[in-house]
Every structure is written in C-alpha cells, then in structure tokens.
Write a protein that binds this DNA or RNA. Structure first.
Length: 569
RNA sequence: UGGCGAGUAGCCUAACGGUAAGGCACCUGCCUCUGGAGCAGGGGAUUGAAGGUUCGAAUCCUUCCUCGCCAGCCA
C-alpha cells in the first residue's frame, strides 16, 4: 500500500490521537487483533464528496499508521440506484486523493452467494422467516417510537415453508415487493432496527456487476457486517447514523457462522458552512442544472474541488486537521480555504494576469522597445527560479488598482502618485484619459529608468506594487470566479434549501488578459495570479479560447477594510 | 414521547481524577517588490445547568436542559 504522508497544519500531526485510534491501539496492545484491517465502503450511487474524504482519511489513515491495510469495497446491494460510471469515478477520485487499496478491491456483490447461504442458515435456525406482508403492512406492524410493534402473521410459519419460499424468491418466481425475508428478533424492541428487520427484498433489476443473475438483493444490514467478516475487517469505521444499527450488526455476526468478528465504531460526519453534503441534494443540483455537473467547481465533490484547483494535499490536510470525534460539528469553510492556501502558497508558480484591464501608456518609454524583466516564479521557493516577462510601452493594469479620487488608506495608483510595477519600474500617473461618457479609458504615465527591476537607488519606496502585463503579449482569456453555492452558512435551515442557492456563485469574466505562457499550463495545475489569487485552467479551455477558474482569492486586507467601511456607513 | 448518542472560547479538536491546551477565525506590532506570505504578541472558557463523591472534577455519580440519530422492501 502506498499512501503519501499528508503534510499537516502546524501544531497537529497526521497520526494525532483520537478516540478510534485509542481503541485500535488498545486492541493491538492487548492482543485482540494482530493486524489492523479497515475498509472504505462507498455505495456507487453518486460521486465522492469532501465528507467521504473524512471517512477515507480515517480508514486509510488508521491502516497506514498502524501498519495494516484498508480495503475499498463497493456496497453495491441496491441495483436500482447504482451505476458503473460511479464505480469508475469513485476509484479515480480516491487515487487522485492519494490513497491506494492495492489488491484489495471488493464488492459486496462478490458475496451474494455466501450471503444467500447464510440467510438460509438463519431460516434453518428459526431466526429468519419469509414474510408475505406488503410494505405498508410491515410498516403498520412495526409500531412507533413509543409503541411496540406486532408480530407478522407469517412470523411462525414453518421453517421448511420459509426455506422453500426463499428459494423461489431467488428464482424470480415472485414480483417485486411480494415477499421479504426478515430476521426473527423482537417486535417489541425499543430499537426499531431490531423489530424483525428486512434482510432480503425482491428486486428484478439489472445489477452493474451481476446483471440479472439475482432477483433478490440483501439489505445493507445483512450485507455490511458479513462482508466485513469475510474480508477480515477488524475495525469497521462508519458515521454516527449507523450507531443505532450496531446491535443488529452484532446480532448477525453472533448468529451466523462467520469467519471473523469485526467491530463497528462510529464517528461524527463532516459538515461545512455554506455547503451541503448530501448525495440526494447534489444529484438534484446536477439534474436541475444549477451547476455544470458533478464536477462543477462549486460542488463539494472531490471532482468539483479538483476542477476548482484545490490540491489533493490541501484537502487531506483539511480533513486531518478537523479531527475525529463523536460530537456533531460544522466546520467553517474558511478552515478549508486555509488548508488549500497553505499548500498553494508553497507550490503554486506565480504569474501576472489582469482580470479587468485598464490601459496604461508609458509616455517616456521608447515605442517598439521590449525588455525582458526577471521575475521570481515563487518568492516562497527560490529553487523555483525566475522567468522572463516582457515589458513594453503599452501595458494593462487592474482597473481596481487606480482611483481618480483615492480615499484614505487606498495605496494604489492615483493621479500624480508613484507606484511600483512589480519586478519592472516605478511609474507615475500623469494624466487620466476619459471617453465621451466620462469613463476612464487610459492612463498616461511616466517611468523612472533608474528603477529597473523594481528598486530605487535613492531609497524611494512606493506604498503599492501592482501587477501588469504587456499589451502586445497578453493572451485573452475567460475567467470564472467562484463563490459559495449557498448564501447562508446553514443552507436550508429555513426550510427551502433551493431558495438559499446563491445567484452569483459563478461570475464569468470575458476579456481578461493573462500571461501567454499559461496557454501551455495543463489542466490540474494551479498557479497564483499575483495579488489576485489562485487560478487553474478549466477543461472547457480550447486552444483559441482559454478558460481559467479562480480557485481562491488571496487573503485581502484591503477588501476587508472596504467591506468593514461599507458596514460602518 | 421509547431507545441510542453528544454537549469544552465565534468554529473545530485535546486534556484518560492533579488545576483548561492546539488549529481556524479575530486583534496588535514587526517585516515585506504580492494590502499575499512570514515573524512576534494579544484578547477571548464560571468546560450545558444544578447537586453530590473527593484533598482535588471537564473527567466519577445523580437529576435536569439542549441538540442529533432511528418508525425505507435506501445506504
């Protein structure tokens, strides 16, 4: 098994203790288990999201830290919702995230024969029976949270009859819903999961792996624990909503001749502000066209975050930094951003690009002259070296970087003011050119030839440094800016989740001018546009029409000041 | 309402009977050719509440409160 060791936020370590690791360590120490075996068991009914990454990180991470192994097992017991497409994408995503199950790829459907035998065994032992009640009738008999259930009239039917019926269910003799196999436990149990839970249902459906070989399929409860036992899983780690199923999990393990006794431990699932981690909702967002697909950069899916430009390392750091516990939690989105920026700041090459261009003419700069300025590829990493960036008489700067009447604390370009063009020259604004409508269309500036490279010998130090791009070299691009999909930190808390969808979670900018070397940047790489944020080429790019996604902005003190100012007035 | 689980600063997590720690966020200062990054510092917690046990309780006990999960032939 080869798993990259995640780097981690300062003050934490990837193998930081948590209550599950404590249990695992004790089981090892006290000889209850020899080798730790965990599993990640997705149902192939959708794409993986950041919540799954927490589960992946826990199960793969514990296996790694304790020298064991982690299996990937598809929980494919409901053919009506599962597709091969999902089976493929899930594997791709896990690999991209940096985890590997080696040879240990399994499917619950691999165990259908064994599971069927065990079901028959249970019937033979008088611990399961075929029930002819309809779904509605079963529900009525189940009772409620406060009232006990009633026995099905079929509960005491002869074993031989159940065995015969179960065999015929398998042969496909009955239509969907005609009968089910139920465990015979206790209709009065305070735990509703123990009130004779359904073990098998009839489903004449095509299964992505077993085709039409089966017309009955095991329920989650009958498949999961036994699959764990077959694979020798020692610690079956899942989220809190399965806690209530554990007594059933244990009951089945105790009443079946399974080859091992796995132990289920539950942890709280991940929640993040401004986002929804529910496959049902994500599927709806896709199907109703609210997003560009499962891999839309706004989606909390692994595929979406990847397309957004979030590096796998940052995602891993995020989930390990969030910890493992049993208390319900909602992580602030900012913590994800922090983990991503932390990686990107270290690794992303820098480039100059202008989102909303404003023309600048350097009046005293020779027409036709081109100078190659040396610019650091990454100030955080000298080994990344430098690159040549052409400087000419006509440039573009960011429209936001100029104000005709600058307020206090606005340090950037203004009439008569001198600023530095990063790694190039100091320039001073001499004149503002407007069109008939009074719109600023151009700035006439002068440069100081003595400041080549961006330093002045006389110790002059402009308060601002701007990014820029040569007009004759810039490449035109579309840039897509992303923000939270939902407007509130707790989407749907008021009832209507879809009413909380943000109207401007995506803003598409045309006419952006980017560093021409970006034409060769492969999809999957993320760069920093200096002073603007992190950007990554989108798969929608074509040779003549490059498209970039904004991964994240840089932390922006000026923007924050502005926002506060707006609040105060 | 029956059962199960959980409550530690704005958000996460730790402390395993010995006197509340770390990350994120926030605030200051320094530094800076990214208003980025970095560095240094700071504020903020009667540990859900009330009782009890103990020399000593976030940790143990009791009661209460709040929140979450369970009444699919979903997982």
């Amino acid at each position: 098994m080869s798993i990259q060791t995640p780097t981690s936020p300062p003050g934490t370590s990837p193998e930081r203790g948590d209550f599950i690791r404590d249990i695992v360590a004790a089981d090892l120490r006290e000889g209850r288990v020899q080798t730790i075996v965990t599993r990640f068991p997705p149902e192939p009914n959708g794409y993986l999201h950041i919540g799954h990454l927490k589960a992946i990180s826990i199960s793969f991470g514990i296996a790694r830290d304790f020298g064991g192994r982690c299996h990937l097992r598809f929980d494919d017991t409901n053919p009506t919702k599962e597709e091969q497409e999902y089976i493929d994408h899930i594997q791709e995503d896990i690999h991209w995230l940096g985890f590997d199950w080696g040879e240990h790829l399994y499917f619950a459907s691999d165990y259908f024969d064994q599971l069927y035998e065990w079901a028959a065994y249970l019937i033979g032992a008088g611990k399961a029976y075929v029930d002819d009640l309809s779904a509605d009738e079963i529900r009525e008999h189940r009772g409620t949270l406060t009232e006990p259930g009633r026995n099905s009239p079929w509960r005491d039917r002869p074993i031989e009859e159940s065995l015969d019926l179960f065999g015929r269910m398998r042969k496909g003799e009955f239509p969907d819903g005609a009968r089910v196999l139920r465990a015979r436990i206790d209709m009065a149990s305070p735990n509703i999961n123990l009130r004779d839970p359904v073990l098998y249902r009839i489903l004449h459906a095509d299964h992505p792996r077993t085709g039409d070989a089966w017309s009955i399929y095991p329920m989650y409860d009958f498949a999961h624990g036994q699959s764990d036992a077959i694979e020798g899983i020692t610690h079956s780690l899942c989220s809190l909503e399965f806690e209530i199923h554990r007594p059933l999990y244990d009951w089945l393990i105790d009443n079946l001749p399974v080859p091992s006794k796995p132990r289920q431990i539950e942890f709280a699932r991940l929640n993040i502000t401004y986002t929804v981690l529910s496959k049902r909702v994500l599927l709806r967002l896709v199907n109703e066209g609210h997003v560009r697909g499962w891999n839309d950069p706004r989606m909390p899916t692994i595929a979406g975050m990847r397309r957004r430009g979030f590096p796998a390392e940052g995602l891993r750091d995020f989930v390990t930094g969030v910890g493992v516990a049993k208390a319900d939690n909602v992580i602030e989105f900012g913590q994800l951003e922090h983990a991503v920026r932390n990686v990107l700041n270290r690794t992303a090459p820098r480039r100059f690009s202008v989102l909303e261009p404003l023309k600048v003419i350097i009046e005293n700069y020779p027409e036709g002259q081109i100078e190659e300025m040396d610019v650091a590829n990454n100030p955080e990493d000298p080994s990344a070296g430098t690159r040549k960036v052409p400087f000419t008489r006509e440039l573009w700067i960011e429209r936001e970087d100029f104000m005709e009447e600058p307020p206090a604390k606005f340090f950037r370009l203004a009439p008569g003011r001198e600023v530095r063009l990063r790694s190039a020259y100091f320039v001073t604004c001499r004149e503002v050119v407007k069109d008939a409508a009074g719109e600023i269309v151009e700035l006439r500036c002068t440069y100081d030839p003595a400041t080549r490279g961006g330093d002045s010998a006389d110790g002059r130090r402009p308060k601002a440094t701007l990014h820029w791009i040569s007009a004759s070299h810039a490449m035109l691009a579309e840039i897509r800016l992303y923000d939270h999909l939902f407007v509130r930190p707790d989407p749907g808390a008021d009832g209507d989740l879809f009413a909380d969808l943000s109207p401007d979670s995506e803003r598409v900018l045309q006419g952006c001018l980017v560093d021409p070397t970006l034409a060769e940047l492969p999809v999957g790489e993320t760069v920093q546009f200096e002073r603007l944020g992190y950007f990554t080429p989108d798969r929608d790019s074509t040779p003549g029409q490059p498209v970039f996604n904004r991964t994240l902005t840089l932390k922006d003190t000026w923007a924050k000041l502005q926002a506060q100012g707006r609040q105060n007035t």
